[in-house]
Simulated assay, not measured.
Amino acid sequence: MTALSGIDVVWRFRLAEDEGNEDAWGLAYSTENGYSKSKESESTVTKDGSVVTPGATETTVTATTLYKIGSDQIDKLEAAMDDNKRVQIWRINTKEVGTDSNSDKFKAKYFEGYFTSFEETDTAEDKVEYSLEWAVEGTGKNGFASLTLDTSEGGDYAFKDTVKVEPNP
């Protein structure tokens, strides 16, 4: 058994409104990505002990990235936050290839949600760094995603691929 390394997991992003116009893209110089799930619970004390009622699962995606001179990705994400635009997000495991009709794709988790936190840090000694966060609707969907390497349930939705969507005739 081999453990998966973080370098083998790539993330892709795209504004939902652009799915017919462009492929999903990665953040240049990404240093850290992840997602987390949490839920509140309520406890009712009874004579026989506590009864726990779980709340809804909340999913958050995070990214830390350095600024790439000449890139418009950070500007695009910041504008998406300001304008409340829906974002599509893929977490792609490059070490697990699909089978059969997905043999040219990789195991992935797909999310849709909104950009909720944007923080820029620029110090005299270090590179400009961004800490980014998205609130995900639902909990994400499992599937297989296409991946082009380059240099750079509340909202019920089906898993979508990273390639642009061609219009139906």
Rank of each mutant, 00 (worst) to 15 (best):
F115Y: 09
F118I: 05
A63I: 04
G113Q: 05
F115G: 00
V87D: 03
T121K: 14
V97F: 12
Q73T: 12
G98Y: 06
W134F: 15
A79T: 12
A56F: 02
S131Y: 04
I69K: 15
K105M: 08
E58L: 10
T53H: 08
I69F: 11
V97M: 15
D122I: 10
D75T: 15
S71N: 10
E78T: 04
T59P: 03
E125C: 02
M81H: 09
G113Y: 00
S50Q: 14
E133F: 09
V52E: 10
T59V: 14
S50P: 07
T116Y: 02
T57E: 09
T62Q: 11
T65I: 03
I69P: 05
G98Q: 06
A63W: 01
G55V: 08
D104N: 11
A79W: 00
T53W: 02
T62G: 03
A124Q: 08
K105C: 01
Q73N: 13
M81A: 14
D83R: 12
T123Q: 12
E112M: 11
E96A: 08
A56N: 09
F111C: 02
Y110P: 06
E112G: 05
K68C: 05
N84M: 10
K127W: 04
F111G: 01
K105A: 02
W134Y: 12
N93S: 05
S71P: 03
R91T: 06
K107Q: 08
D100G: 13
D126G: 13
E120N: 04
N93W: 06
G55T: 06
W90M: 08
K107C: 00
V128Y: 04
I89P: 05
V87H: 01
W90R: 10
S50E: 14
T59W: 01
L66N: 09
S101N: 13
R86W: 01
A135K: 15
K76I: 15
Q73K: 13
E58C: 04
G55M: 09
D75A: 14
K127F: 09
G55S: 06
T53R: 09
M81S: 10
A108W: 01
K95W: 10
V52Y: 03
E129C: 03
